[in-house]
C-alpha cells in the first residue's frame, strides 16, 4: 500500500510539474521520463533477473528505427509506435534465445557484440537509415490522432503517460509471482532449476519484457523528439541504462528513474562549467561500483525502508 502510494505520488508530482516547471526543465523532464522507461526495462533484466547486458542499445534502436522508418514510409504515429515497441521485444527475444545460452562475462560480451553488429548494420544501410547523420520525422508523422506531439505540453503529457504505464506495470510485475521467480533465478539459479522452474525461459521472458520497454522508449523518442540517428545504437546507449540503474538502485522499481533524473541534472549543471560529459559518466560509474553498489534506493532499502519495492 505504502509502495503504491509512493509511486502514485511520484506520478502526481510529475503531472504537477507539467504546469509548474519552467520551459527549460519541462523539456528536460520529458526526455528524462522517456529514457527512464528505457532504464526501467533494463532493470527488469539486470536488477531483478540478474542479467547484465551491455547491448540494450540494440533494443532501443530497434524501437527507434522501426518507428522512424515506418513513419518515413507514411505510417501514422499510433501504428508506428506499436511497431516500435514490438520490434524492441522481438529483437530481444531472438537475440536472447541465443545469448542466454551463455552467462556472466560471456553474456556481457555476446550482448555487446550483438549490439555492435546492429549499430554497424545501421551504418551499412546508410542510404536507408541516413547513418550517423540521421533523419527527422515529418510533423505529420508526429500527430498522434488529434494530439500534436511537436508541442511542449502534449509531448510532456505523452511522455508522462508512457512513463506511468511503464512504472505501474513494472510495480505489478515485481510484486507478482512471476516477479518473485525472476528474483529467485537471480539469487540462485541451480536451486530454482531444482524447484522445477525453467530457468532459461524465465530469463528469456525477462529479457523480452526488458526489450519491449527499451523498444517503447526508442519508439517514443522518435515520435516525441522527431529525430532518429545511429548514435542511439552506439555503446553509450547500452551503458546509460546500466548507469541509471546502478545509480538509482538495481532491483528497485523507481531506481532507474531517480538515476536518470540525477544523471541528467548532474551533467546539465557541470556542463555550464566544462564540457565534461564523459568524465561525469565515467566517474559516476567508478564511484558507484566501488562505494555504493546498491545505488541510492538500494541503500535506503538496506537501511530500513524494507517495503520499498
Amino acid at each position: 500500500m505504502k509502495a503504491l502510494l509512493l509511486h502514485l505520488g511520484v506520478l502526481a508530482g510529475l503531472l504537477a510539474l507539467n504546469f509548474l516547471a519552467p520551459a527549460y526543465h519541462h523539456a528536460m523532464l520529458a526526455r528524462i521520463m522517456v529514457l527512464a522507461v528505457f532504464g526501467l526495462g533494463y532493470n527488469i533484466a539486470f536488477g531483478y533477473t540478474g542479467l547484465l547486458s551491455l547491448g540494450h542499445a540494440l533494443y532501443f534502436a530497434a524501437g527507434l528505427y522501426a518507428t522512424g522508418l515506418l513513419s518515413q514510409a507514411g505510417w501514422s504515429a499510433g501504428p508506428a509506435l506499436l511497431a516500435g515497441v514490438l520490434a524492441g521485444g522481438a529483437i530481444a527475444l531472438v537475440s536472447g534465445a541465443l545469448a542466454l545460452r551463455t552467462a556472466g562475462v560471456s553474456l556481457m560480451i555476446v550482448t555487446l557484440m550483438f549490439a555492435q553488429a546492429g549499430y554497424q548494420t545501421i551504418l551499412y544501410y546508410t542510404p536507408l537509415t541516413r547513418g550517423e547523420e540521421g533523419f527527422n520525422l515529418t510533423n505529420a508523422g508526429r500527430m498522434l490522432g488529434p494530439v500534436n506531439l511537436t508541442e511542449e505540453t502534449p509531448r510532456y503529457l505523452a511522455a508522462l503517460a508512457l512513463f506511468a504505464v511503464a512504472l505501474l506495470l513494472k510495480l505489478a510485475l515485481v510484486r507478482s509471482r512471476r516477479g518473485r521467480v525472476m528474483v529467485a533465478v537471480r539469487e540462485n539459479e541451480e536451486r530454482s532449476r531444482m524447484l522445477g522452474y525453467d530457468v532459461f525461459r524465465v530469463k528469456l521472458v525477462a529479457l523480452t519484457l526488458s526489450g519491449l520497454y527499451a523498444g517503447a522508449a526508442g519508439a517514443a523518442w522518435a515520435v516525441l523528439f522527431g529525430y532518429v540517428g545511429a548514435g542511439f545504437a552506439g555503446i553509450q546507449y547500452s551503458i546509460l541504462p546500466l548507469l541509471y540503474t546502478l545509480l538509482g538502485g538495481a532491483g528497485t522499481v523507481l531506481g532507474p528513474f531517480l538515476g536518470a533524473l540525477l544523471m541528467f541534472y548532474l551533467i546539465d549543471l557541470t556542463s555550464d562549467v566544462s564540457q565534461s560529459y564523459l568524465f561525469m559518466v565515467g566517474a559516476s560509474l567508478l564511484i558507484l561500483v566501488v562505494f555504493a553498489p546498491k545505488g541510492i534506493l538500494g541503500s535506503l532499502r538496506a537501511r530500513g525502508l524494507k517495503w520499498l519495492p
Binding site: R191, R193, M194
Partner: peptide, 24 residues
C-alpha cells in the same frame, strides 16, 4: 527430460551443500 521437468514429474532433490535463497 531436463531437470526442471523431472521436478515437475515428482523428483525432488535436496543439495549436498545446502542451497537455499540466502537473500530471501
Amino acid at each position: 527430460l531436463p531437470a526442471h521437468q523431472r521436478v515437475r514429474r515428482g523428483i525432488a532433490y535436496t543439495f549436498q551443500i545446502t542451497s537455499v535463497y540466502a537473500g530471501l
